[in-house]
């Protein structure tokens, strides 16, 4: 396996914000809505076609810190610490075997994606995107939902007439997750 230094996920302070309602903004929204729909409908292979092969996909653990230590809120260990190959391997396990018990029977999920901001980056055709995610997850006969809210910091690359995701950092709001695993993608 190869170790690659991931692209910083948050847009820099001087980055130019892409106008709400512009063609690029609309394309980004279409991308985010489409992947939420595919993931909620368990179309994982179709979702994987939206990923770039240099994907870095992480969800750093969070700690409760005093305000003075806030910059150390996120740790070097991740709930996810993945690349394209490992994501594809997870998908193969989930849809390619009859024994991925954590999602068989599967959860019923909804991914609500809002508060989308898009910034230009130093590389033409690459954009830095921040979005809010609310995941509701219901399983078996539970009357309530496991929920997870997060900010997602994405990088999308315009390649051959479509966007591909090549960086996603998921900043989960919980220090102690309320769900027993992340057998679903965020």
């Amino acid at each position: 396996m190869s170790i690659t230094k991931p692209t910083p996920s948050r847009a820099g302070p001087n980055a130019v914000e892409v106008m709400y309602g512009s063609p690029v903004y609309s394309q980004v929204m279409q991308f985010l809505n489409k992947e939420a729909r595919l993931l909620d409908h368990r179309e994982l292979r179709a979702w994987s076609s939206m990923l770039a092969t240099d994907l870095v996909y992480t969800a750093p653990v969070r700690s409760t810190r005093r305000v003075e230590g806030f910059h150390e809120e996120f740790g070097s260990i991740g709930h996810f610490d993945d690349d394209y190959n490992s994501i594809m391997s997870r998908i193969d396990r989930l849809v390619g075997t009859a024994s991925a018990w954590s999602e068989d029977p599967p959860s019923r999920t909804r991914r609500f994606v809002t508060n989308v901001t898009v910034h230009e980056t130093e590389t033409p055709d690459e954009y830095a995107i921040s979005s809010y995610l609310l995941l509701t997850r219901n399983r078996a006969d539970a009357k309530d939902y496991k929920q997870l809210s997060a900010e997602r910091l994405d990088r999308l690359r315009w390649t051959g007439g479509r966007f591909l995701l090549f960086r996603r950092e998921i900043l989960v709001d919980q220090v102690v997750l309320g769900m027993p695993n992340l057998a679903v993608f965020l």
Binding site: V61, S63, G75, S76, I77, H79, V175, V176, L177, G178, M179, P180, N181
Partner: peptide, 11 residues
């Protein structure tokens, strides 16, 4: 340790 621990709740 390679970082602070993961934590989650199991019912």
């Amino acid at each position: 340790v390679l970082g602070p621990p993961q934590r989650l709740t199991i019912d």
